[in-house]
Simulated assay, not measured.
Amino acid sequence: MNTNQSSVVPDAQATPAECATAVAQVVQFFETLTPESVAQLARWYGPDARFKDPFNDVVGTVAISAVFAHMFSALDQPRFVVTGQVTQGLQCFLTWEFRFYFKNFKQGQPQVILGASHLVFSAQGQVVLHRDYWDAAEELYEKLPLVGGLVRWLKQRASR
């Protein structure tokens, strides 16, 4: 294991406990993410890491940080709650709830998106691939005032 870093990082011969600890540290980073801590993303991600979700496909810590910084500017009180995890070797699969409020909507209702992330770590313990899976139509578009009705109608028509 690499002891030059302040966090536990898996190497090619890492034990399951070491990998689980590295995953736990990344989970804690995301569960406590703030606009200020986005700048620390490079501590956990490799310089050429790739991030992909239904709206973004970017490479590099600057671009990935920009995605999360935008999240804080576009939404009120966004936060992640990790609800499950499976770790195998240098990768893990996390299930999560993304909780937030829409800005500029007078609803004031809390919103929740259910999703999952596939994380692949380098031998040095940095995330090299972060792929988020969630249904943008069901989890987001259906909740929007004007678009939601159309999406629900289309979904209903397609299910018959």
Score class of each variant (00 low, 15 high):
45 Y>H: 06
89 G>K: 08
2 N>E: 11
114 L>T: 10
67 V>F: 07
148 G>Y: 10
5 Q>N: 11
39 A>T: 07
100 F>D: 06
149 G>F: 10
62 V>T: 15
56 N>F: 05
58 V>H: 06
130 H>C: 06
104 N>Y: 10
64 I>N: 05
74 A>T: 04
26 V>P: 07
115 G>K: 03
130 H>E: 00
62 V>Q: 15
57 D>M: 06
94 L>S: 03
10 P>R: 04
102 F>T: 08
150 L>G: 01
62 V>K: 10
13 Q>Y: 12
140 L>I: 15
134 W>K: 08
127 V>M: 03
147 V>F: 12
24 A>T: 00
133 Y>C: 08
156 Q>H: 13
88 Q>G: 13
73 S>E: 13
111 Q>R: 05
153 W>F: 07
6 S>V: 01
70 H>P: 00
88 Q>I: 15
33 L>A: 02
41 L>K: 05
19 C>E: 04
96 W>F: 10
67 V>T: 09
28 Q>M: 09
139 E>C: 08
18 E>Q: 15
108 G>Y: 01
105 F>H: 06
108 G>Q: 05
8 V>E: 14
109 Q>R: 11
33 L>K: 00
25 Q>L: 04
37 S>L: 08
128 V>D: 08
17 A>C: 01
59 V>K: 12
104 N>V: 07
111 Q>S: 03
93 F>C: 09
55 F>T: 06
85 Q>Y: 03
116 A>M: 12
77 Q>D: 15
114 L>R: 14
55 F>K: 04
25 Q>G: 07
129 L>E: 12
120 V>Q: 15
29 F>P: 09
65 S>A: 14
3 T>F: 05
105 F>R: 14
88 Q>M: 15
45 Y>A: 05
85 Q>V: 02
151 V>N: 02
63 A>C: 02
74 A>F: 02
92 C>L: 04
77 Q>M: 15
91 Q>W: 13
148 G>I: 01
93 F>V: 09
154 L>Q: 06
48 D>A: 13
12 A>C: 11
6 S>L: 09
152 R>N: 14
144 L>N: 07
140 L>K: 06
43 R>T: 07
87 T>I: 02
133 Y>T: 04
43 R>E: 11
143 K>C: 04
21 T>W: 05
44 W>V: 00
19 C>Y: 02
130 H>S: 05
101 Y>E: 01
130 H>Y: 01
136 A>S: 07
53 D>N: 14
9 V>Q: 13
90 L>R: 14
154 L>R: 03
78 P>H: 12
78 P>T: 10
43 R>V: 09
138 E>I: 06
135 D>E: 08
89 G>M: 03
78 P>V: 06
32 T>D: 08
135 D>M: 12
87 T>A: 13
135 D>N: 15
92 C>Y: 03
77 Q>A: 15
154 L>H: 10
97 E>Q: 10
135 D>Y: 09
55 F>L: 13
89 G>P: 04
31 E>Y: 04
153 W>I: 00
9 V>G: 13
50 R>A: 13
77 Q>I: 05
101 Y>R: 09
9 V>T: 13
86 V>L: 15
150 L>W: 14
134 W>T: 10
89 G>I: 10
4 N>Y: 12
159 S>V: 05
140 L>N: 08
70 H>F: 00
97 E>I: 00
61 T>R: 00
120 V>A: 14
117 S>E: 07
86 V>T: 15
86 V>W: 13
37 S>D: 11
59 V>D: 03
124 Q>N: 11
6 S>P: 03
58 V>E: 07
